[in-house]
Measured scan of single mutants.
Amino acid sequence: NRRVIAMPSVRKYAREKGVDIRLVQGTGKNGRVLKEDIDAWLAG
């Protein structure tokens, strides 16, 4: 149960899109989840 590193704005964006942020692979520094990662996850 790893802790997800993401800015609050990215967490909010994921919530609005209905994405469980824990399932998204972060590509930022130290595995940080970026807004682009959410978009990529939604695109498949």
Rank of each mutant, 00 (worst) to 15 (best):
A43I: 13
A14L: 01
A40R: 15
S9M: 08
Q25S: 14
K29M: 11
K12V: 07
V33T: 05
V10T: 07
R11I: 10
P8T: 09
P8K: 15
S9D: 13
G18F: 08
E16W: 10
A14C: 07
P8Q: 10
K35L: 11
G44N: 15
V24A: 04
L23I: 11
L23V: 12
W41M: 07
G26D: 02
M7E: 14
K12D: 11
E16N: 10
A43Q: 12
S9P: 07
A6V: 07
D20H: 06
G26E: 02
S9A: 14
G18N: 11
G28R: 02
K17H: 14
D37F: 00
L42K: 06
E36V: 13
L42H: 05
M7H: 15
G26T: 03
G26C: 03
K35Y: 08
A14K: 00
I21N: 00
R3G: 12
L34H: 07
I21Q: 01
T27H: 07
G44E: 15
K17V: 13
G31H: 08
G18I: 03
A6L: 03
A6M: 04
K29Q: 13
R3F: 04
R32L: 09
R15C: 10
G28F: 02
P8I: 11
R11D: 04
G28L: 02
V19F: 02
E16F: 11
K12R: 14
P8S: 11
R2F: 06
G28Y: 01
K12T: 08
W41V: 07
D39C: 05
K17M: 14
G18A: 07
L34T: 12
A40Q: 13
R3C: 07
V33H: 01
R32W: 09
R32K: 10
A6N: 04
Q25P: 14
L42W: 05
R22W: 10
V4P: 09
L42C: 07
D37M: 01
V4E: 06
M7V: 12
L42S: 05
I38L: 04
K35F: 09
K17S: 09
L23K: 14
N1W: 01
T27C: 05
G44T: 15
D20Q: 06
I21R: 01
N1I: 15
G44Q: 15
T27N: 06
L34W: 04
K35D: 04
R15D: 10
A43E: 14
R2W: 04
K12G: 05
K12I: 08
A6G: 05
V33E: 00
S9N: 12
W41Q: 04
A14I: 01
V4I: 14
G31R: 06
G31Q: 08
A6W: 02
R22E: 10
G26H: 03
R11W: 14
E16D: 14
I21T: 03
A40M: 12
V24H: 01
T27S: 14
W41H: 09
T27R: 07
G44C: 07
S9G: 13
V10G: 02
R3N: 13
V10H: 02
M7Y: 15
G18Y: 06
R3I: 14
S9I: 10
D39Y: 03
N30H: 12
L23G: 08
K29S: 10
G18W: 06
I5T: 08
K17W: 08
V33A: 03
I5C: 07
D37K: 00
L42P: 03
K35E: 07
T27F: 03
A43R: 15
L23T: 09
V4K: 09
V10P: 02
V24S: 01
N1R: 15
R2K: 14
I5R: 07
K35W: 07
D39H: 04
D20P: 09
K29T: 13
R15H: 14
M7D: 15
